[in-house]
Structure formats: structure tokens, C-alpha cells
Nucleic acid binder design. Sequence first.
DNA 1: GTGAAAGCGCTAACAT
DNA 2: ATGTTAGCGCTTTCAC
Lengths: 332, 332
Amino acid sequence: MRNVAALAGVGIKTVSRVINGEPNVSAATIAKVTAAADSLNYLPDLHAGNLRRSDRKTQTLGLLVGSVANPFSGAVHRAVEDVAAQRNVAVFASSLDDDPNRERGIVSAFLRRRVDGLILTTVAKNQGYLQPEQEHGTPFVFVDREPVGVEADAVVSDNAAGATRATCHLIEHGHRRIAYLGDRLEIQTARERRRGFLEALGAAGIATNGIPMIDGLSTEDSATVAVAALLQGEDPPTAIFSSQNLITIGALHALKALGLHRSIALIGFDDIPLGDMLDPGVTVIAQDANAIGTLAADLVFARLDGDDTPERTYVVPTSLIIRGSGELTPHD
Amino acid sequence: MRNVAALAGVGIKTVSRVINGEPNVSAATIAKVTAAADSLNYLPDLHAGNLRRSDRKTQTLGLLVGSVANPFSGAVHRAVEDVAAQRNVAVFASSLDDDPNRERGIVSAFLRRRVDGLILTTVAKNQGYLQPEQEHGTPFVFVDREPVGVEADAVVSDNAAGATRATCHLIEHGHRRIAYLGDRLEIQTARERRRGFLEALGAAGIATNGIPMIDGLSTEDSATVAVAALLQGEDPPTAIFSSQNLITIGALHALKALGLHRSIALIGFDDIPLGDMLDPGVTVIAQDANAIGTLAADLVFARLDGDDTPERTYVVPTSLIIRGSGELTPHD
DNA sequence: GTGAAAGCGCTAACAT
DNA sequence: ATGTTAGCGCTTTCAC
């Protein structure tokens, strides 16, 4: 900036004014400064400016998701980016892999870089460690899972209701012996979906003891193995409710390998890519990742703009997408 | 930091030494400073430090991809992040949507934030605008597409060879009338894959005039429409080579809607999710997104570590994954 | 082993 | 309409 000022033959503050589009600079001066800046390929240092700027905003957001390689996370990320881009805000993205030990390290890496706000999918038992930073004024929005130990906005799917809907759909198609495939119980959404499943069975008067329930599935392969064992064991289920996209894909592999994909019903929570192209199509409870990401970003910016209404949890509805696999009956 | 120094009863420089793990501080002082920092929830400001630090490294990388919601981009992103995380480097990710007008804006947003290096999938005709920044010492690595107008490292798939391989595979299965579905010709990879396709036909002595070739497909829907028209027109092909994952998915929809998915052969460039679960399975030329991302990140860090060997392009091999759709014959 | 002073690139506050 | 001075939070340099 000094060099630009020297080349343009003006003071450094005038350059600052031109760069930031501040008023009270003559057109001739603007032209001189712009020309000098261009010829030197000058790009202002956002962080140096921020150091002294009164609002202290870095125009940066931190986003923590399950994995940037996961389609659900990717869709959320994209929605957040689109909102942020309109305000010239850049987005840091990190993958958590549902590892509670990485959580604090990643958050602190964001905070050291003085992000203006954070959008987080967390997995640690408690997010109380964020409280000092929150009091300091940094807004947090949790997505997919609600925080524990700190009051903050959260955007989640209606996990229990969606699971109930899926289960009722299977029951309506005549199923009584429905297996449940779940993620690790540390994860809040897994517990919610599990609860919704059990409530549907209860409401239909189906005894839940003896129902095959497998928790703790965290990878596609573990689901494939578990489902294969289940279907080849005694008294196999006539339908399966799978509570997460990778688990659904694992279950599909097992069903296909055993040639049972046209006889055992399946509904998955979370849509899967090309679910409409399989035979039968895969019936799912779809989350609206785009709506979730957009809302989360809007909330962060609203807080940054001074919104100080009480923190709350926003529930984004899921939808049942009927494609065939969930409509198989026990007699197929 | 001042507050920490005051609370610990030491000078500010001593706090700096403790935070950065510099030597020549007594154990007792370290303990005092650490306690003070903890009680104040102190987190150093990375950018303020960087302003005066001699190496001027922000521990930040910029990544520009097609879209963070695209599975290929997501896999590249994840690989880059994993390499960066080992060095405590955070990653900015932005989506380009193959829009040349957005390219410079995003790059300049990264540069204003003084990223240490850039990994870019570009689409503008020319990247000469990066030259001043490159001379200034910022390393660039291009992924998926080579740059024009600037000498820089690039990591690409063997696009032409992969397309040739796919086409030969179809020819070996008896096809002579093979349709080509391509992305917009502004995109370098699209041109390379097109070239590979034509070379395979030429080598087999198949006349290329009259072969149905459709370029400029950029969305799934446009591919569906184009393929439907192609198959219902006069003299339809017996096989299709699709040059990109979204196009392949669009083609699959058209084939299925017309009930031709078991009679028209199809090979796609780029793997697609659940390609193994469809019926028939989708034969593809798969890119190794993980290898591409890892190599690109390794190259950026090598440059940052002082590697000054000549810039070059690295070619990552693709692989043919046989699943059924590419092995249908003209008589099926 | 420790601290004081200067300065990184920029903006706020106050001149002129 | 423009420039000057101080200072953001930190590291450098150098003195103690």
C-alpha cells in the first residue's frame, strides 16, 4: 500500500480510501491510485486491515462437517458457501469423521484465524468449551445435531418424526418383523431416529423385544456384514429400516449379494445418489441438505447483523420419497 | 496477549515465547504463563503474528473446485484436507461452477487472505493473470486441467488414454456405431476425452463422419434430453461413451425411461456413486480423486518447502471398471 | 532467562 | 479533498 501511495504520489490514507470505496476523494485521484494499484498488482491484505478495523470482521466462516467427501455434507457446504459468497465471505471447511478428539482442535484452528462465525456438526459429548468464545461475541450455529452445555442456534432434521414415518410406512405394507440398523449411539441423530422407530412400533402395538436392532454401525462395510448375518440367521426380518445413508448402501450390497433385494423391504434415512435408478428404486426419508445449509448460514449472518433473539432449534422437515423398495410386502 | 502477560506478571515477549514453544524460558515461568492463558481462554491471533513473522505463512491453503457438492470434487477436497491437516494448515474451499467470470474473483479473495498456496480447477481461457503472484512466490498447483499462460505444476488424469480405452472396449464388444456425449469444449478435459474417443475409432478404421457426437452438455438434464432424442431418432447407436459423471447419470435416466438399459452399451468417464448396484452395473473409466488430491497437496507443500525443480504436469492413471453396461453387445 | 522498542500493513481519529 | 499520527496483536531485534 505504501508503494501504491508513492507511485500515485498521494498519501497512504488516500489509497486506503480508494481501495475501500470511501467518499471524499476526487475522481482524478481515484484514477491515479487505481492505475498505480493495477500496475503494481496490489491486493490489500484483509487481515492486516482487520487488525485495526473497528468491526474486526475477517469475512471468514468456519464450517465443520462429517466429511467433505460425504454427499450430505457436500450439499450443506455448498448451500453455506452460496450464502456466504453473496457477502464476500470465504468458508473454511474441515472434516470431523465423527471423532470427538478432533473436534476441539479444529474449532480452535478456526478461532485462531478469527473466523466471524462457526457452523458446526459436532460429536463430542459436550460443547461447553465454546461458552467463553460465545460470550466474546462469536456466533455459533449447530447443524444436524444439537449442542450440549451451551445455548446456541441449531438446525436439524425432524429425525424422530422421519423415522416414525418410515416405520409406519413399512407397517402399513404389512410388515411386523422390521429390523433396525443404526449408527453409534453417541450421535444424537442416531438416538432420535432410533426413538422414532421404536415409537412407531409401539403405536402399532408391535412388541419391541425380539425385534432385531443393530446399533453402532459406522461404515458401509460393517452394515453389509451385519445385514448379511441378519438375513442368513434364524427368523430373518421381512423389512429393514436403515438410519443413515452409508448404512443403507451397505445394506443394499448385502441384499443384492443374497438376491433378496426384490423380496425384503428397505427404507433408508437420508437420500442416496442414484436411489431412483436402482431396481427396485430405494424408498428413503430425504433430508433437505440445501435448506439446512442455507438456514444455518442465514442464522449466522443474522447474529452477526445484531439479531439477539433467544437461541433456538430450527427443525427442517424431511420427506418420504417412494421408489419401490419400501413398498415390497412380506409376501414378495 | 497483553492481558496474559499482565496476569502472569511477565513481559509480553515471554508470553510469546511460551505460546510458540521457544527455548530459554524457565519451567516456572512456562507454568505461570500457561495458567494465565488458560484462565483467560487466550487463543493467539494467527494473522496478527503473521504480519511481522519473517516467513509470513498463514497456514492456509485455497482450493478451487467445480463444486463442493460434486462427488469428484469432494474426494479431491478430502485428500487435500488430510495432507494439510498434518501440517496444521486450514483449507478454504470454493465452487467455480465452470463459470470463467467467477474464477478471478475467487482467486483474488484467496490472495487477499494471503493463502500460502493455491490448488485450482480453472475454466477461464487463460491463467496469465496469476503470473505476478507466482513471481511473488505463491505456489499454484492445477488439478484436473492444465493452465494456459502460466508455467505451473498440474495434476491431471490421463483423459485421452482413458477415453481411448473405453472406446476400444466398446469396439471389442462388436460396436461400430458408438455415440459420444461430451461436456463443453471450453473445458480442456472435455477436448482431451473427445480426442481419445476419435483416435480409438480412427485406429479401428471406423469412419468418424456420421458418428453421433454431442458436445456442450453441462447438466444431467441436458444429457437426458439429448440421449432420448438420439435413441428415438434415425439410425440410433448401439453403444454410448459418456465423457463425464453427470452426463452419464443423465444418459442412464434416458436409457431406463426407454427400457433400453439392457440393450444399449454404455461406458462413462468418471465413476458414479452406486454404479455397481445398478442393473446392469455401470462400466466406467474411474479417476483416482484421492491420488490426485494427495499429489496436488504434496506438490504445494514441496514448493513451499523450497522445491524449485521445473514445473511439470503429473498424469494420474485412470482405470477401467467392468460392471456390465460396457459389455453389452450390439445384439443384446 | 527476560523485556523494551520498533515495525508488519492497514484503519481510526484527528488534523489541515 | 487529503495527509499525519497512533495503534491493532503480534514477532523481530537487541539490550540487559
